[in-house]
Write a protein that binds this DNA or RNA. Structure first.
Lengths: 324, 324
DNA sequence: ATGAAAGCGCTAACAC
DNA sequence: GTGTTAGCGCTTTCAT
């Protein structure tokens, strides 16, 4: 691949002139511009972003640390973040951690070595490792440290709304299927749900699932719930798990929502695909994604963030898996 | 961020020694090793991969050009590719093109400037742009040019199997819902299905959907199909679209599979979530992903590829949306 | 308006 | 065994 020196030589000018032309930084005569562009086209020259980054100290890359790109919540988030980062000229390194602390630490080293301008983290297994890294970090879904800006849905309130909706729909014997205890987001949903129940002096049953997204695992957990047909309302920690619960109930000829009402979380595309369609609590993915990118850009540009801890509101989306 | 010179100075050695130590290339005494490591730890030094890449001419990065990370087929593929590339020490740039030619061309420029070692493309909107790029390219899902190695499922045979399965299940009045005509993969599925029908002297109806994955759009297309209840078997070009068709039928009280049998394509996680579970044609995602990565690595290492055009076999997964 | 030269952080050939 | 030095491709200061 050709370099700036070659372009300069062939165009009969100095390399500084070529650099100025490419970056539109400083005057270059129209005549010289044409000569340079001609050589660039002929050689198919593209400036080396690596060399440029060494000098400018900005690689124009970001690390996107995500547990599982297969999960609709995270891949929708990735889509928004990618689109928005791209608009600012940044390109993303995809770091799929599989919720593995080891892989996350490995990627942290890689991102550091590639001198990414910033890191967008989510549901991380590390704390310490992020604070002394000397690279701007923004987190969504969970809190890493008080120094690191965090944007998350109001999961607690989402849990409360889920309860309210089932309660108003007449449910008095509810079950909550909660996510793994290591996930901050699902933990908050659980708390909101239980707190709201307490206020109504209602006790609810709770079962914990071990995985957020592996169908086989979720099905295994389901079989452990005894007398599921005794409940009249179930709040499940995400839509995928809710879909599996729905299937489980349908296979046992339990009618949704007549016998059991069910409500999920996320408002992923699957809600519309199910029959009956799934009532759920919507996470404002677009809003979070945009805030994440804008925060990291501000941090990179050394601008002070006014708000360090965003809590974006969730919203109940009523569909056909609940009455009311 | 500190550099190799600073480490060398503080450890009281030359920079070449530090370089040798870091890269385990050449002898360094145990005593010096300790001194160097101490400074590395103290300063939190990480070698600059950008500077290294300029010299070694290998950035250890790959570009992953994907139309839509939200689509289960592509995000599963991304997961496999990421995992496998990582094993070889490569990190991925995520390029989500949204099937936009403009965005793809933009990303091609970015990848080139970042001097990626190779590009993994899929369902691309460009041809020319890939052949003269002077970077190794491997494609899956569709063919770019005869020079570019391609790995794809045997979509044609998948279409044939789908027909055979419905036919053997007793269907004689079938509909195929095909994908957008710009997608090579769905075009092949369509051809396979129609060819197999012809061999049985059966005519089948075909309707084309305009999108592969946008629920609203797919639903719009569905309303254009008149008398859908007259069919006894439907082969849909992917699982998501099939799920939407299923929902549409269920809302009209058409029983699956008793009234209409239905079969999808991909074997994505959604098949197991539906009720009845969806019979489908499985794409060997893992196998394709591994081949893709190994091919690009071989190309990067200047090894000749023995096979330039892999066709990996698909498999019918029987579930409850079809009889037989 | 343009070019020479220094320097970004690194590797490797070549001295010693 | 280890250090000096040139050079990778770039940007930018400072002459001219």
């Amino acid at each position: 691949m050709s370099n700036i020196r070659e372009i300069a030589k062939r165009a009969g000018v100095g390399i500084a002139t070529v650099s100025r032309y490419i970056n539109s930084t400083g005057y270059v005569s129209e005549e010289v511009k044409l000569k340079i562009q001609k050589e660039i086209d002929e050689l198919g020259y593209t400036p080396n972003a690596l060399a440029r980054a060494i000098f400018t100290k900005n690689s124009m890359t970001l690390g996107l640390m995500i547990p599982n790109i297969t999960n609709p919540f995270f891949n929708q988030m990735a889509t928004i973040i990618e689109e928005h980062a791209n608009r600012y000229g940044y390109t993303l390194f995809l770091c799929n951690t599989q919720d593995s602390r080891k892989k996350e630490i490995e990627y942290l080293g890689i991102l550091k070595s590639h001198r990414v301008a910033g890191i967008i983290a989510s549901r991380t297994m590390c704390k310490e490792e992020y604070v002394n890294i000397n690279i701007p970090v923004v987190s969504f879904e969970n809190h890493i440290s008080s120094d690191i800006p965090t944007i998350s849905s109001n999961n607690y309130n989402g849990g409360r709304m889920a309860f309210g909706h089932l309660y108003d729909g007449g449910c008095r014997n509810m079950l909550h299927i909660k996510g793994p205890r290591t996930f901050e987001a699902t933990e908050m949903r659980y708390k909101g749900f239980v707190d709201a129940a307490k206020e109504k002096k209602l006790s609810v049953d709770v079962v914990e699932f071990e995985s957020d997204f592996q169908v086989k695992m979720l099905e295994g957990n389901l079989n452990d719930i005894k007398n599921i047909e005794h409940y009249d309302g179930i709040f499940v920690f995400n839509d995928i798990a809710a879909a599996i619960v729905m299937k489980y109930l349908k296979e046992r000829d339990i009618k949704i929502p007549q016998d059991i009402q069910i409500i999920g979380f996320d408002n992923s595309f699957i809600c519309e695909l199910l029959h009956p369609s799934l009532t759920t609590v919507q996470q404002p993915i677009e809003e979070i994604g945009v805030l994440v990118v804008e925060s990291i850009i501000d941090l990179i540009n050394n601008e002070e963030l006014i708000i360090k801890d965003y809590l974006v509101e969730t919203r109940l989306i009523q569909r056909n898996s609940t009455l009311l």
